[in-house]
């Protein structure tokens, strides 16, 4: 069969990270399933444009799609920050994925990205992030005055509301700043990756499972490209993304558990696990921030309404 679609996708993950390998495998599967009619080249973060510029690049037709953290586009519309990481809403990937697939999330996402010239195919997530800390943290009270790094998006705001002192340093300075005790804690990523990057060598009190963040990675494609595709290819793309979500969840969770087991047996690192009450307290603070974000734009308000309606119907709040 002839190759009908040659697509370039940029990831928000670096080339050597397990997540990126999973994304490459997905691209390969799409090619297999379409009998070579669709060939996707997965490009690592920053290879064509910087991580926060992919949305513009897709709508300009420079690249065809991305697998990226939606909160990078918070600066375009606060709605992206809220839907990407409604801190406190999800305690497991399956909860978020149910909302996206069946609870109106997909339609909502498309109403947000389509005006920018993108089509949202589906969502995946690396899972619940672990919290990196050099000091023991066993509950919300311990966050008071904690000097910590948090990136753009809602996470920073929630920690500020919880009494911590978020510092807006970039990812590239997280390690040295933790090492030299400029900061005491950091929002980084999942346990296994934090471990691999050596963050637990300099911050020996990680909180796992994490309590603060589960980012949504959107798989989106240029809308005109999408509209030009036949239905069978569209269906394959949608289904393969749904499978990627499962793949990513399962395999990264396994890696996390492996890393946790290794950290436990090696010693030197104390893993803290928050009680249900403390988690609930943090969720309470987080959800109180949603409304503030919602007030910032019409779209954010729409995200808020849809989310609250869904969570209420499911008895989750």
């Amino acid at each position: 069969n002839a190759q009908d679609y040659s697509l370039k996708f940029q990831s928000s993950d670096a080339a050597g990270v397990p997540n990126f390998v999973l994304e490459q495998e997905w691209a390969k599967r799409v090619s297999d399933m379409t009998g070579g009619r669709v060939v996707i080249e997965m490009l690592p973060v920053n290879s064509i444009v910087e991580h926060a510029e992919t949305q513009d690049a897709i709508s300009a037709g420079i690249i065809d799609g991305h697998i990226t953290d939606t909160s990078y586009f918070t600066g375009k519309d606060p709605a992206f920050g809220l839907i990407a990481n409604p801190v406190g809403a999800w305690s497991a990937p399956s909860e978020m994925l149910r909302f996206v697939e069946y609870g109106g999330g997909k339609e909502l996402m498309n109403s947000l990205v389509e005006p920018y010239g993108l089509h949202f195919i589906g969502a995946v997530t690396p899972g619940l992030e672990a919290f990196v800390s050099a000091v023991p943290l066993d509950g919300v009270a311990d966050l008071k005055g904690l000097k910590m790094r948090a990136p753009e998006g809602m996470v920073q705001q929630v920690f500020a509301a919880a009494g911590a002192a978020p510092v807006n340093i970039p990812q590239s300075e997280v390690f040295t700043s933790l090492d030299k005790k400029v900061i005491e804690a950091a929002d980084a990523t999942v346990f296994s990756t934090n471990q691999a990057m050596g963050l637990h060598d300099v911050a020996k009190h990680p909180v796992y499972p994490g309590f603060h963040s589960m980012p949504m990675l959107e798989v989106s494609i240029n809308k005109a490209k999408w509209d030009s595709m036949p239905d069978d290819i569209k269906a394959i793309l949608e289904m393969s993304v749904r499978d990627l979500a499962h793949d990513m969840d399962a395999r990264l969770a396994m890696k996390d558990m492996e890393a946790v087991a290794k950290a436990r047996s090696d010693g030197g690192v104390t893993i803290h696990n928050w009680s249900a009450e403390e988690r609930a307290k943090f969720r309470q603070i987080a959800t109180s921030q949603w409304e503030k974000v919602a007030a910032r734009s019409e779209n954010a308000q729409r995200v808020y309404d849809t989310l609250v309606k869904y969570l209420t119907a499911q008895g989750m709040i």
């Binding site: 670096a14 080339a15 050597g16 300075e173 390690f175 040295t176 990057m197 050596g198 300099v202």
Partner: peptide, 12 residues
């Protein structure tokens, strides 16, 4: 640092 982030190895 950039190498560490790309290769997923310990910056320390």
């Amino acid at each position: 640092i950039i190498y560490g982030l790309t290769a997923n190895v310990s910056i320390g």
